[in-house]
Design a binder for these strands. Structure first.
Length: 490
RNA sequence: GCGGGCGUAGCUCAGUGGUAGAGCGUCACGUUGCCAACGUGAAUGUCGUGAGUUCAAGUCUCAUCGCCCGCUCCA
């Protein structure tokens, strides 16, 4: 079985085979950023394709979307990210514990206020914390100068420096879906229940990253916002829970390495009615169960928040476009009939739909598929290393070889290769012994290899060798494409 | 952010102040011809980066970047 027992082994495997490299490695690397190599990009693209096929293509009730990464600043005011994602943090000099300044309790007032107020960065210095207690060790007033933390990446939009606008890189793709809810309703004839799906990059300035690609600052999400009628939401929550779990196992992840983890009620965001993580057991370390995907019942929170956001727009202009100076407008009395509501033609009633959100990390699941596929086995006293990828995920589908590099075999093999590569990713190889070429493809996880041999020249047949069993079938050259299509389900 | 460990060829690693190394992998030629064969040969190094100490630094010191482990943080 797999001998990957440390994260280092996996990092090494990823680099050696061209799956994942450290970003900017020739310059000493850039923390928390990684690049996908030639095999890695194929694998990850296949993971994304498999998600899209399962969540969009094969369903009548989901449509796709691809939003811009840069969005109007008010999007993040309404979603709550602008406030929640900007904090002042002070560190206790005694125990090195870092705490949000607005969470610190006063020595004289140990009841502690609710920390909803926004703390202006200029107004707080270490001196102001002289009476504050460290929640970890109880020491009073031993804090460092507060450090401002911004969890969203900022950039400037507009080439004119004096007239440019601060914009955030999205910390999740979901808000782009909510912002387009009305557009999709008006342009596609969808009816509730229906979903909008999107795959794309998101950015978060995590306080700590670490652990290879499990928590990176730039990452790719596949998110579905599934809109349904209030009251039916828990049924859909359970539907997506099952559907999403099955997706992983159908693509070959071993069941014993997958589990659900339901969030405790006190762990839930205040608007969420339920949340479950799909976790994968990576074969290393102690904290080995890692989240691949979260499935949440977000209720009608997001659409209601954006209705409030739309009502706040003028205030934003009036306050020099400074988000920190404004409060989100209160909710309209008849918010149910607002611009982001839905009119049910049959029931003749208008409501804000509830949302079930399966949100999957594409980088994490790509790595899980890679790690799970890794295998070592003894063959005639030698170790055979291979990746047992599901055919849909394999970066290369077929290797094509001439048995030897003479007697016209390369020409015939090339011709087969030129034909097959129109249909799937193929790799042609005529270097060194054929056994070595088989093993090289095993390492890349290629499910099938086609070999042209002496018999091919006589009766127009080739051998097709199976990665997992190493068995060969003899097929007529004309039938190779159909044979492989059947085996690969493509 | 704190504590600990690490950084030498594509990978795994040796090299304890004095000429930059091995195995695997890669490439070429020969041989073999269906599962990592063999022989011969070759290429590949800012020793993470920058300073310092020294006649001399991969080796000692400092800083810095990056990675791993444990806390912490985050969700």
């Amino acid at each position: 079985m797999a001998k990957l027992t440390k994260l280092d082994d996996i990092v090494s495997l990823c680099k050696r085979r061209g799956f994942i490299f450290q970003s900017s490695e020739i310059y000493g690397g850039l923390a928390s950023c990684y690049d996908y190599g030639p095999l890695g990009v194929e694998l990850k693209n296949n993971v994304k394709k498999a998600w899209w096929k399962n969540v969009v293509q094969m369903r009548d009730d989901v449509v796709g979307l691809d939003c811009s990464i840069l969005m109007h600043p008010m999007v993040w005011k309404a979603s709550g990210h602008a406030d929640k994602f900007a904090d002042l943090i002070a560190e206790c000099k005694k125990c090195n514990t870092r705490t949000r300044v607005d969470h610190l309790k006063d020595k004289t007032n140990e009841h502690g206020e609710e920390h909803t107020e926004h703390v202006a960065i200029e107004s707080v210095s270490g001196q102001n914390l002289i009476n504050k207690i460290c929640p970890a060790c109880g020491i009073v007033g031993q804090f460092t100068e507060p450090m401002p933390f911004k969890l969203m990446f900022e950039t400037k939009m507009g080439a004119n420096i004096d007239d440019s606008m601060t914009i955030q890189l999205r910390p999740e793709t979901a808000q782009g879906i909510f912002a387009n809810f009305r557009n999709v309703l008006d342009s596609t004839r969808v009816k509730i229940p229906f979903g909008i799906a999107q795959i794309g990059k998101s950015f978060r300035n995590e306080v700590t990253t670490k652990a290879f690609i499990f928590r990176t600052r730039e990452f790719e999400q596949a998110e579905l916002e599934f809109f349904c009628e209030p009251g039916t939401d828990m049924d859909w929550y359970n539907h997506w829970k099952e559907t999403r779990f099955k997706w992983y196992t159908d693509l070959g992840l071993k069941k014993e390495n997958l589990r659900f983890r339901e969030h405790d009620p006190d762990e839930l965001a205040h608007y969420a009615k339920g949340c479950v993580d799909v976790e994968y057991k990576f074969p290393f370390g102690s904290g080995d169960w890692q989240e691949l995907e979260g499935i949440a019942n977000r209720t009608d929170y997001d659409l209601r928040q954006h209705q409030r956001g739309m009502r706040t727009l003028n205030k934003w202009y009036e306050n020099d476009r400074d988000l920190s100076k404004i409060e989100l407008a209160s909710e309209a009395e008849d918010y149910n009939k607002g611009p982001l509501s839905y009119f049910d033609e049959q029931k003749k009633e208008r409501y804000i739909p509830y949302v079930i959100e399966p949100s999957a990390g594409m980088d994490r699941s790509t790595l899980a598929f890679l790690v799970d596929a890794y295998d070592e086995e003894e063959v005639r006293g030698e170790t055979r290393n291979l990746l047992r990828f599901h055919p849909a995920l394999a970066p290369i589908k077929v290797g094509i070889f001439p048995l030897v590099k003479k007697d016209g075999m390369p020409e015939v093999a090339r011709k087969i290769y030129d034909n097959l590569k129109k249909y799937f990713n193929c790799f042609y190889d005529e270097k060194s012994a054929v056994g070595r070429r088989y093993r090289r493809q095993d390492e890349a996880g290629t499910p099938f290899c086609v070999t042209v041999d002496g018999q091919t020249l006589e009766d127009n047949t080739v051998t097709v060798r199976d990665r997992d069993s190493m068995e060969q079938a003899r097929i007529t050259t004309d039938n190779v494409l159909n044979y492989l299509r059947g085996k690969l389900d493509m």
